[in-house]
Design a protein around this nucleic acid. Structure first.
Lengths: 232, 232
DNA sequence: TTATTAATTGTCAAAACGACAATTAATAAT
DNA sequence: ATTATTAATTGTCGTTTTGACAATTAATAA
């Protein structure tokens, strides 16, 4: 029997930065940690990678368990592996960011896991290096969203241009000209205009749109230049 | 003493896809594997993550040992963690891609580690999931190089526009108009024209350029649209 | 009927893009 | 010495994209 003799073995975990959008602000979902050390402090949702699953599998499992959602947009970010990042035992963690429709989130899970949505700009201090993970995730979300049409993942099936506009402004923490924005976003050809209007936000009402699934999956890797005057 | 009871522990490794450019073609550096299983088969250069180092540290250590180079451009790609990817024992591997100046590579190390440069399009089959890693690295290199000025990392300090041009064509596996290319690349403001010319390639000779280090480090994260007609 | 408000469409000058042509600086051939 | 040759470099120009800003539209509330 061949062995990789005397190499050290480590725990491997996943941690997920779950982003949501309530119509006004960008939010992240945090949980109260249920095990020592740092029990009852706020942390990202995570878990150990089991023997029969890949890190991607583990991240999906954790998300399913804690949000009730399957098939959510999930992207591997990077590995966090400083030797002393976990004070108890060496643990490497694979960071993921997830984009979910906050309205699909099953709120009763708040109680089960002591989960809570926080404004991205007004969140508690987190355990270990989770603060760094959130900062990295935010940066990566901004980067990716400037080039690829991924923010739709945080909106309902039917959405309006003004909703999308606010979301883009939130993610990029900047003002975007509404007139240029709607022209640019419709010119991607990814949106299908519906007959129905959303009248809750204004007198005139804003037309609902939905994603053109075909073009979306075909173009999800295309560079789109969705942010004006972008300097990263 | 707190413990994460009964969680499985794994080996964690790094594997590096080392890219180089010989003036004509894109190449990768492979090594003959020195341990069982699959001993003497071609593989990426890699190693286990030691107890006192992060995966980034480990990747740098491996690169230093096998190429003689320090401080090379190194980028974390993704983690490879399918449960059965290593037949002997569960091992997760962090994939990195590295860009080095092939001329700085210390050739005597070829013998020490049975390393060899291969044309990216004419390489042997690799062990485990290393073939997938190379494919992923190539894709990521292409993606990144279309937006950020990173290909300079594969050229000497002094280089010519035609050299850079060939490198861009190699990486993207496409033809680029020389006239538009030189205009675009110089208009980034990242290059400083030197008085000296390289006369090996043509009668007229091509001016040498060097990187404007200041602007380079300031703009290394900027979106630059370096590829014409790009559809990813 | 009118005032109000947000959504939408319109205008336009500047910049970027990319297809293609002409010129230039050297060497090699005559 | 003159000319042919070749690759590097600079130039041209119509099209498209960008982004600053104005005007119009569709509804409701006064």
């Amino acid at each position: 029997m061949i062995e990789y003799s005397r190499q050290p073995h480590y725990l491997v975990a996943v941690d997920c930065i779950v982003f949501g959008f309530d119509g006004e602000h960008l939010k992240i979902l945090l949980v109260k940690r249920g095990l020592e050390p740092e029990i009852n402090k706020w942390s990202l949702m995570g878990g150990f990678v089991g023997a029969d699953e890949s890190p991607d599998d583990a991240a999906n499992r954790v998300l399913k368990k804690m949000t009730g959602l399957e098939g959510v947009y999930l992207e591997q970010m990077q590995i966090y592996g400083e030797p002393a990042r976990d004070p108890i035992e060496r643990t490497l963690s694979v960071g993921y960011f997830a984009l979910i429709d906050i309205h699909k989130y099953e709120a009763q899970l708040n109680d089960d896991y002591e989960a809570e949505w926080f404004l991205i700009n007004d969140r508690p201090k987190l355990i270990f290096d989770h603060n760094q993970m959130v900062a990295d995730a935010r940066k990566k979300l901004r980067y990716k969203a400037a080039l690829h049409p991924i923010l739709f993942e945080m909106l309902p099936k039917k959405f309006t241009i003004p909703q999308l506009h606010i979301l883009f402004e939130e993610v990029n923490d900047t003002k975007i000209d509404t007139r240029n924005f709607s022209r640019k976003i419709t010119s991607t050809g990814l949106l299908i205009k519906l007959a129905e209007k959303d009248r809750t936000g204004s007198k005139k009402g804003a037309f609902y749109f939905k994603l053109d699934k075909k073009k979306y999956s075909a173009n999800s890797q295309a560079f789109l230049n969705l942010m004006p005057n972008l300097k990263v």
